[in-house]
Computed example of a mutant assay.
Amino acid sequence: MNVQSFLITFREALEAILIVGVIMTYLKRIGQTQWNKYVWIGVVLALAASYGTALLFQTVLTGFSMMGSQNYLKIGIMLVSCVLLAHMVLFMSQQSRNIQGAVEQKIAAILTVGGALNMIIHSFLVVVREGVETVFFFAAITGGDIQLALQSWGALFGLVLAFVVGILFFKGTKRIQLKTFFRITSIFLTMIAAGLLVQAVGIMQDIGIMGSMFRTPGGEIGEIYNLTAIMPEHPLDEEQYLRDSGEHTLINGQVGIFFKAFLGYTHNPSLEEFILYWAFYFVIMVLLGVQKKRHATLKASTAHIS
């Protein structure tokens, strides 16, 4: 259980730290650190909400009688976070083209009271999603006794390691130019957003909210390929594969569960998961292209007037 607590805490905390770190680093690089307080407000509110969820689960809920409600909450948070992350990618891309101009003044004009609320909501959703997921996962590995997982050395060590990795990551970005930083973090955030979308689709199909155009002869949702032998998405899948085939997987299931939580990896995607995953990238690329074209047109018009 200690190892499981460590892996859960590490991957959930690391994702939240990296995304919040991207926001904080971005604000620092453009000289708008006065907005940091709104990010921290969102983080603190999310931690309080996560603690409240854990307390509610520990003292009120019994077993998994509320699993359906948990799934709806999880789906909602994933979809909203996906949209906000996509918006952030487009926003960062737009600002990266204005680096040669007065970026600070333009950002100051954009980040109004609505911007402050945006900061709070976005940082809240980023952290609360990880916090609520951690509560659910801890409940799963302990049979509902979340306190047992929270008090384990695994949870503490996972949190500490996540902070260390996050600090090392952002110290390394100091040597990267702002435009390059935008591009790298945009790719990173797009991958996370796509992962959230496909995870939400998978949950909706599992609980029957969403159907599938591709089903097996038995009526079950079909898979377009299966990579269990290469990298299962969960240690339990690895154990089942070993039991059924007598062979070990190429990559450990612990690696798969990290990529599943981090990037939405699944070893046997449905048709809808596969299509929507890549369609999300396509839509983002189209929107970035449109944004770039508008910027070029505006720049040309400004030059012509001048």
Rank of each mutant, 00 (worst) to 15 (best):
N268E: 02
S152H: 13
A48R: 01
F182S: 07
Y265S: 04
F91M: 08
L117K: 01
V132E: 00
A108G: 03
I77H: 05
I221M: 09
H87N: 05
H122K: 02
G166T: 08
L14S: 10
L250C: 04
Y225C: 02
E130W: 08
L236G: 03
T142R: 14
L14N: 03
G101E: 15
V113E: 15
T33S: 11
G218I: 02
T185F: 06
I77W: 05
M88S: 06
R11V: 08
K28Q: 13
V286F: 04
K74R: 15
V43W: 10
T190C: 10
F282H: 06
T266Y: 02
L55N: 11
Q147D: 01
A193L: 09
S69V: 01
G101C: 05
I121P: 00
Q254K: 12
L159Y: 01
G42R: 13
I209A: 02
H87T: 02
E15Y: 08
E15C: 10
F262D: 01
V127N: 06
R29K: 14
L45T: 04
G131F: 13
M92W: 07
G115N: 09
V135F: 09
Q151K: 11
I221Q: 05
E220A: 12
S81G: 12
E223M: 05
I184N: 07
L90G: 06
G208C: 06
T53M: 14
F282T: 14
F280H: 07
V135S: 11
Q205P: 15
N252M: 05
A193I: 13
V103W: 04
A140P: 03
G202A: 08
T142G: 06
I8G: 01
G166N: 02
W153Y: 14
K174S: 14
V283I: 15
V201I: 14
E104Y: 07
G76W: 07
K174F: 09
G202P: 11
E104W: 03
T62Y: 10
K292P: 00
Q291N: 09
S123P: 00
S96N: 04
